[in-house]
Design a protein around this nucleic acid. Structure first.
Lengths: 341, 341
DNA sequence: TAGAGTTCCGAAAAGGTTTTCCGATTCTTG
DNA sequence: CAAGAATCGGAAAACCTTTTCGGAACTCTA
């Protein structure tokens, strides 16, 4: 018990050793099953350790081993849409409590990012995962860092770094494949800002699949706008004015898809009977609340996070890789493309 | 450069000292502005440190100082709805890079939580913030921990702990006040599961305010259900069947409110002209996408997080407090209660 | 019984930093 | 010029753990 704070003092190996009547070295060996230590002595030490609930100081261990069992997660993704699944995946990949994660949000500010980076390196993290806020390539942290880095979601500009990104092209391809499989032939694509690589990639995949089917995109072109429900509504509405025979809409995000559903409903048309709608992101709060529930493309960020963590651990062990790896998306089918019940 | 990994070795104070031609002690003093060291010597040391981009090893520092500059954030809140704002607030309160946060998600599993707790204590965090997934009280981590703990969002069962929770009663009160201020008199309340304290508290605040105005809740009772859009739709729909003269609906969550907006729209009624709707949570993706945009009560979790961090830092410094502190909510007015130009 | 082999335990170093203490130099003053 | 004060730099301890190395005690064999 510490006199100043009234809180119990952290117990050290020395305390355990004293209680068990052995030296510090013996206590350490007893607890770690290392070297020769008499079975009775070991039992005595373990009992003593449990009695005072000894927890070895990771700092000291890390200092000695040159490994801290800590990784840094550096993100720019304010609301945590992307970082949290990645964090979860990383935690899964290592086993609970084995590896700890220091989470820093740079909030899109380079200065703040470099401060955080500094702090993480000072804490001697074993490695870093950098999560982007979009799939557009970002500046590399550089190759002269003392620890390995994996870029997740948003890739690094430097091909010498290892980046894991969702395969948006395949995602768009997959969404349109699904619609074609349902017999739809007049398929429009409404998506977000053209400045986003994610938007362009999803469109590319969609167009490629349409092309394979000998079709063009309904409405004559991909409709770029912003990532909002309002855009989804207005784009869908004016699209239906121009092309009343549309039978499917692939939306670049679930928000846009929600807007599309609303606009279609306003016309008195039925989803999916008259028009099938599919979104992108599979953001649960949006997809399961709508009428009907929204089919969507899930980027499986948790799997991406797991993979990122595994790659990072491998790099920490010495076998690092580089280049951009595209991770597959997953189709989640709900009532907006296939009538249920 | 480390021969094994090809990555630069971490540079230590010894390297700096050698480069500057001084002892380790002098180098330390020079860099920390401590003790007597000649101005030229200091300059030489600083130059050397910059040249090799020296970063002091936080582990060593922490080991010595008994302070790591790290806090643990222990959460059960899967999607990070609540933890992320709290994390941001905590980061704000300490200044970027000064304090680092170890984030652990126990996913509602007590075993996992205790593992994480163990790991955090082993890493010698200076303090802990525990974020609940609901405002229902949770088991205390106990008072015999070697570090201070602050409970955020979900309070501890033990009044000896310090808990910071959003003031849901005041939030409900505030929402109804707003509606009354708009001249509405027939106000219904549709909310989530009665098992949630948050739902009961918001209802209590609403009823209290109605009572002050000499009114009862429209429909005769608070409508408990679940936190979904579907419930919002069905509850609103049947409510309008029974009580067609409703002029406002206070919803216990933004999802429920979205459902209410849809149901009202389906009837051909106008929001806010015929019926005003206000939600709770101010979840941006839901409030700004709707037609019209949704007024809501914001729990200001970032402020709560800042406050939690400040309280934690105070406790670390030795002045800890206890009890449950209720943090005020904030009204965010949008088009669903007040028609905008 | 001597020697060899086993089994057990402890002293000490290492990891990187800060801080205290002390010796050494320079400067001031009588 | 000598004594004292002021200024500077370095040695060493401390934080806590793991690991290596060597010493001590014991058992077994010849």
């Amino acid at each position: 018990m510490d006199a100043n704070t009234g809180r119990p003092r952290n117990v050290t190996l020395k305390d355990v050793a004293a209680l068990a009547g052995v030296s510090i070295a013996t206590a350490s060996k007893a607890l770690n099953n290392r070297g020769y230590v008499h079975v009775q002595t070991r039992a005595r030490v373990i009992e003593a350790a449990e009695k005072v609930s000894f927890t070895p100081n990771s700092l000291a261990k890390g200092l000695l081993a040159g490994r801290t069992g800590t990784i840094g997660l550096l993100t720019n993704d304010l609301e945590g849409r992307f970082s949290i699944p990645v964090l979860m995946g990383a935690e899964d990949a290592s086993g609970t409590g084995k590896m700890s994660v220091l989470l820093c949000d740079a909030r899109g500010d380079a200065i703040r990012e470099s401060y955080h980076l500094q702090a993480l390196l000072a804490r001697r993290v074993d490695g870093l995962i950098v999560v982007g806020s979009s799939t557009d390539p970002r500046k590399s942290l550089g190759s002269k860092l003392p620890v390995p880095v994996v870029y997740a979601y948003g890739p690094s500009e430097d091909p010498g770094d290892l980046s894991l990104v969702p395969d948006n092209i395949a995602g768009g391809f997959m969404a349109v494949s699904h619609l074609l499989g349902l017999g739809r032939r007049t398929i429009a694509h409404i998506t977000g800002e053209k400045g986003y690589l994610a938007a362009r990639d999803r469109a590319e995949g969609a167009l490629r699949r349409l092309d394979e089917a000998g079709l063009g995109v309904a409405g004559g072109e991909v409709l770029y706008g912003d990532w909002s429900e309002a855009w989804g509504r207005s784009a869908t509405s004016s699209l239906l004015d121009r092309e009343p025979n549309i039978d499917a809409v692939f939306c670049g995000s679930d928000q846009i898809a929600r807007g599309a559903l609303d606009a279609i409903r306003d016309r008195g048309l039925l989803v999916p009977d008259d028009i099938a709608v599919i979104g992108f992101d599979d953001w649960e709060v949006l997809t399961t609340g709508s009428r009907p529930q929204l089919s969507s493309v899930n980027m499986d960020l948790e799997a991406l996070g797991r993979h990122a963590a595994r790659k990072l651990f491998a790099a920490i062990e010495g076998t690092d890789s580089s280049g951009v790896e595209k991770m597959p998306c997953r189709l989640v089918i709900r009532g907006s493309t296939v009538r249920v019940g």
